[in-house]
Design a binder for these strands. Structure first.
Lengths: 157, 157
DNA sequence: TAGTATCCCATTGACGCCCATCAATACCCA
DNA sequence: TGGGTATTGATGGGCGTCAATGGGATACTA
């Protein structure tokens, strides 16, 4: 299991904790850090979450850029805005107030699988956005060019 | 744990001490020197901090520049202006007056994770800067192209 | 010897850990 | 195939621990 798929709605308790869906948690087992990293999305009032390996990757990519460059500074916003959220023994995380405020989450949290990462939404906000995206895609007659399947070792072209 | 991620605000006491956030301190455990190095940034009224290993890396990078060149002289200011700040038993450091003055820090200190290093800001000064960076990223569409291709199970690097 | 730096101890408030309960689902057997 | 049961994930809440903070005592130094 390595992919985040599907949507799940879980409650937030008085302490601000919310259970991360079990299927999602399973994708974290091979990580050195038992928890997730959440960073804000630019386009939506929602957060995206990933594991430590992705964060390392991001950090290393930033290191390739020249130190003190604008480029590095701008991209570093992700690292700066990220929250490190450890799982409690029951697989819950405590959502910091910044996330609650930015997403509008109060009583329920929506987890949206996105493959390698997943998103965290306020359920109704997601519905609205999803409706709009669907309408746009419909109006546009949206098409998608699928990428050629990635080649693994030992495979012919 | 080796990455600095997220933001933390801590108080400064009468003696000029401030607690380095525990998650940040953890990234120093494998360092030979129990403390941090802080050097000023050119672009902002803020300081950047790192461990001994990164400092060595920085020093080595400077040596790669032509000896006696203006470039090397200019960037070497970083080393000249760096402060070596040891942790006290509680994990605090005493910020020297030069840092307080240059950053405008008085009662609170903001620690900003940046991956392999982190920055030290006066909270409000950072807010302004971050707002701008976030707006730029948003305006730009902020699609982030990662340099390092993701490695999957069974794939070679 | 005043000023400073370092260490040690106390307080407190948030957070992590543990245990109990509930609900949904999977499993088992007649 | 239906009903009963076991399992497990989600949820709630109490409590202990630890990180952050404050202040005092002591060593050091200029």
């Amino acid at each position: 299991m390595a992919l985040f798929v599907g949507r799940y709605v879980n409650k937030i308790d008085k302490k601000g904790r919310v259970s991360v869906p079990k299927p999602f948690r399973l994708a974290f087992v091979e990580q050195s850090f038992a928890g997730l990293y959440a960073y804000p999305l630019f386009k939506f009032n929602a957060f995206e979450a990933c594991g430590e390996d992705f964060m390392e990757r991001l950090s290393n990519s930033l290191e390739d850029l020249p130190m003190f460059s604008d480029e590095q500074d701008d991209l570093s916003v992700i690292l700066e805005s990220a929250h490190r959220l450890p799982f409690d023994p029951e697989g819950r995380v405590a959502l910091p107030s910044e996330i609650l405020k930015a997403t509008g989450i109060t009583s329920q949290t929506l987890f949206v699988g996105r493959g390698r990462r997943f998103q965290i939404w306020e359920p109704k906000a997601y519905e609205v956005n999803r409706g709009q995206a669907f309408a746009r895609a419909k109006a546009r007659g949206a098409t998608l060019q699928l990428r050629t399947p990635p080649k693994r070792e030992g495979e012919e072209s």
